[in-house]
């Protein structure tokens, strides 16, 4: 996929935003020198972009995150450095936004600068195996809530339908209909479908714009 200067990832919590953000950052780094990942999640206490700090450092990817992420306190704060996303127009950035409208609320602060520059994609991460977004209509409900809170309308959809380790190629194929319905009802394109690298090869010729994901390290 072609990258805009800023790629914003938002969606229902647990839809897979952070994993996609981490993977996209490494793809970006292959093309651009100055790559930044912004962990804007102020909602989720565990499993954060910050968990990949070491890998980012090795690859020369800059991470901007709350100094309290992954710590023992629950402080919904973001560092002032976050403004460099819009100030430094030489960087290519991935913005990992917290789940649901509560997570998207922080985006509102940066929305005017992002929209003024206009060089961005605002992607909705869709997982139809999540119980509160099983179909297009329920996903649209979440999308509208996020747009209201984040003050930026979506420009595209990422279909990340999976049920964790039990995901089969069939899981993804059968989700395409729902993703296409979502695309039809919202008028937004499916910019990519993301799947675990384990099943990538068996789907490569069946689904357009397929993108393989490596999973972040798990505790167990």
């Amino acid at each position: 996929m072609e990258f805009k200067r800023m790629t914003l990832l938002a969606g229902h919590y647990g839809s897979g935003k952070t994993n996609i953000a981490v993977n996209l950052a490494f793809s970006l780094k292959k093309r651009y020198d100055n790559v930044v990942v912004a962990d804007m999640d102020i909602v989720n206490p565990y499993f954060r972009t910050k968990d990949s700090t070491e890998d980012f450092e090795k690859a020369g990817i800059k991470l901007i995150a709350s100094r309290f992420a992954g710590s023992n306190v629950d402080l919904p704060s973001l560092p002032q450095e976050m403004y460099s996303l819009t100030d430094d127009k030489t960087c290519h950035a991935i913005l990992d936004i917290g789940g649901d409208e509560r997570g998207a609320l922080v985006l509102g602060r940066y929305a005017p600068m992002i929209q003024e520059e206009g060089d961005y994609e605002m992607l909705f991460v869709f997982n139809s195996a999540r119980p509160l977004t099983p179909d297009a209509d329920s996903a649209i409900e979440v999308m509208r809530e996020i747009e209201w809170a984040g003050k930026i309308p979506f420009t595209g959809i990422v279909n990340n339908t999976n049920i964790g380790e039990e995901t089969t190629p069939e899981t993804v194929i059968s989700s395409m209909k729902k993703a296409e319905e979502l695309c039809e009802k919202t008028g937004l394109p499916i910019l990519m479908t993301t799947v675990h690298e384990r099943i990538f090869s068996s789907l490569e010729d069946k689904i357009p714009n397929l993108y393989p994901l490596k999973l972040q390290a798990k505790i167990l």
Binding site: G14, N127, A129, R130, P131, P134, N162, I163, G164, E166
Partner: peptide
Amino acid sequence: ADKVLMKGNEAIAEA
């Protein structure tokens, strides 16, 4: 019914 992907906390609530 098909399986869904859930957080432990959500699974408690839905159950």
